[in-house]
Amino acid sequence: MIMENNFLTIKDLSVNYGETTILRNFNLSVEEGNIYCLVGPSGCGKSTLLKAICGIIKPVNGKILMKGQAICPAKQPIGYIPQQFGLLDWLTVKSNLFISKRIRKTSSLPEENHIIEQLEISPLLNRYPKELSGGQQQRVALARAWLLRPELLLMDEPFSSLDTFTTERSVELFLQLWKERRTTTLFVTHSLREAVQIGKYIVLLSKQPANVLEILERDFYQTEQQIYNRLQELWKE
């Protein structure tokens, strides 16, 4: 059931790419302060959904409300981490981190150094993105999003291009930071294991045009394995 007084409400959202309908009458309600992991088949529209929320793609129909008002990235800070991290090659890491301050003309935050230290990117500040490893770029992208003090965090498969060890470390760092702020997060992943590890709610999407098949709440299950088994059953169906 879609409740418009939820933190984020997506109602009857439809998005097309040319002739192809990616999302049709998509509905989702998101409560504040939780991580929602979106899982679904490749090409079902997970990334498109995030892009529609942060204004990169204009939907043909429907509405997206944040705290009851039409979502507006210029006014509401939304942290977006795309699949390839979205770092600007011609800016140093430091300039990339603070680009949001320049765009939105905001002032410094007291916890800037803390975030930079926590994500272990202090030694990287004067480097350029192409000089960084995938894991380092991912942490810089995460820091950039956090430094915005976002009300909503959108993460599009941020760990998909990383090796297992780097992913584990990145997930750990992300969750450490997240617990301090408890920012409402939509986290797209193709990994059921990652979804179970990170999300309080796991939103299972159908194939294109995507719709919500089921939302699993982690608290209803005693172990991660149970959730994982349930997800696999639903996936096979």
Binding site: G55, P82, I99
Partner: peptide, 13 residues
């Protein structure tokens, strides 16, 4: 086009 996405999400003009 992806280079523009992060700035769009920040509300850049």
């Amino acid at each position: 086009r992806e280079d523009f996405h992060v700035l769009i999400s920040l509300g850049a003009n």
